[in-house]
Design a protein around this nucleic acid. Structure first.
Lengths: 248, 248
DNA sequence: CCAAAAGTGTTGCAACTACACCCATGG
DNA sequence: CCATGGGTGTAGTTGCAACACTTTTGG
């Protein structure tokens, strides 16, 4: 009772899972957390406060994990099977035992949860990862190399990726994974790693430039013995014009 | 306590809203219910049992409302703003008062709910609508003529329609809105009403027939003073072959 | 000089659009 | 006969894929 004034009211049986994508070393990566003393990984999850929009809850989870605000977030699917955790009963027991040792209350792990899935696109270089209470390690995993995941988190990642591929061109999402300025070949590599296939440079360049959504800046000098590439910046206003012109 | 053995356990703060589409009089219709003694309409909603998958809950809601099973259902979005009901406080008060008169407990109307949105595609001629406790009238409304809706149900319908347009070709959904057999021009009208634009008959016909997903049956004789149209049946097996052949 | 970067040109394919036009047929 | 249904042909367009080729330039 003494602490009641500070008790946060969480909506029961509802969670938010946030698949965080980043681009690094020419590959698309997902941020994963490992439960303490186990080999089980998970995406970043959280709960929803009773006075909080779901989108806000997802933003909060993302902020807690990465320190970033104003990040691209998209809700993609809600996972609500009773047996989402089927085949993971042992996983539960193992995790509860291992984490329980550190004094964290893990009883919620065996409750039924309906989880609203979001994915986030972040500038890898800006992320400062904070672990949660139950995790001791984090990792940026290549999307084609996902380890054993908690519950149905593998399916959640797959569905997120499917939707990301989908929205990539429709919403010009690739730029959310890059720094402020980038070269054309970096952009092409983002496309290639997300779509999982090689693209022809000349055609890709033509396509992107014809959208008229980029501003070309000075060149990037790295001291290589060759011509320096141009840097580009994504122009939000131009992008809006472009997106509004695309028919539907 | 005497009734405790039969009490169903519902997940709190979670609801399922089901947008039911049908095709009638050459138009795409949505099934709406009107709250007793009010002018406020809603789509078909329900709650989720604690031992029930979300998809099952949606199927159950659909069955209760239409008497139909094994119907195409697709989850399309989850609505979770705290103020989903903003601007509808008066709506609440009005509805609670009006419906309260008939002895139905409506206290849940003012709770916060996270609603998982599904849409269903039904054969209009097979539906036998059952009202729920709170409604006294139902109506199949043209999608371009939606009345004042409960809470954010207008936004829910719009989002469902957007997704339906989207999945129409990808998943060959049009056939779910037609009877077992249908003519080519009926099919074309389904496409036209969903997409909201006229299509050129010859091109449409070529496109559909080239998919090789239909079986042509005998002609339909209605006694008109002109050539009778062919009837077609959708062939599920052929459709699967077609969909698996379409690249991505 | 030379390797990387940037850009142009062209060819061919596939899909779609818009029409013109023809044949079939029920009553 | 004739209104409706069913189908073919085709010309123009667009977008994209593939690839050859040229030009630029940092060090």
């Amino acid at each position: 009772m003494a602490k009641e004034y500070s008790v946060v009211n969480w909506l029961p049986h509802i969670s938010v899972d946030c698949v965080i994508f980043g681009f690094h070393e020419n590959q698309l990566k997902v941020l994963l957390l490992k439960f303490k003393n186990t080999d089980v990984w998970s995406v970043s999850g959280g709960f929803v406060k009773s006075d909080e929009d779901m989108d806000q809850a997802a933003s909060r989870v993302l902020f807690e994990r990465t320190g970033l605000k104003d990040i691209y977030l998209e809700q993609f699917y809600t996972f609500g099977d009773v047996k989402r955790n089927q085949g993971a009963i042992q996983q539960h027991a193992q995790i509860q035992e291992k984490i329980g040792e550190s004094g964290v209350d893990t009883s919620f792990l065996s409750d039924r949860y309906i989880s609203i899935g979001y994915y986030a696109l972040v500038d890898f270089s800006k992320v400062k990862v904070n672990l949660d209470q139950m995790s001791d390690v984090f990792s940026w995993n290549d999307i084609y190399d996902i380890p054993t995941m908690f519950l149905d988190h593998r399916a959640i990642i797959d569905k997120a990726l499917e939707r990301l591929r989908w929205s990539l061109d429709q919403k010009l999402l690739a730029f959310n994974l890059l720094a402020e300025t980038f070269t054309m070949s970096e952009l092409q590599q983002v496309y290639e790693t997300i779509l999982g296939k090689k693209l022809v440079r000349t055609n890709f360049q033509r396509k992107i430039l014809s959208m008229d959504i980029l501003v070309r800046l000075e060149k990037r000098y790295l001291g290589g013995a060759h011509k320096a590439p141009y840097l580009y910046r994504f122009d939000v206003k131009k992008a809006k014009v472009y997106l509004s012109q695309v028919e539907y």
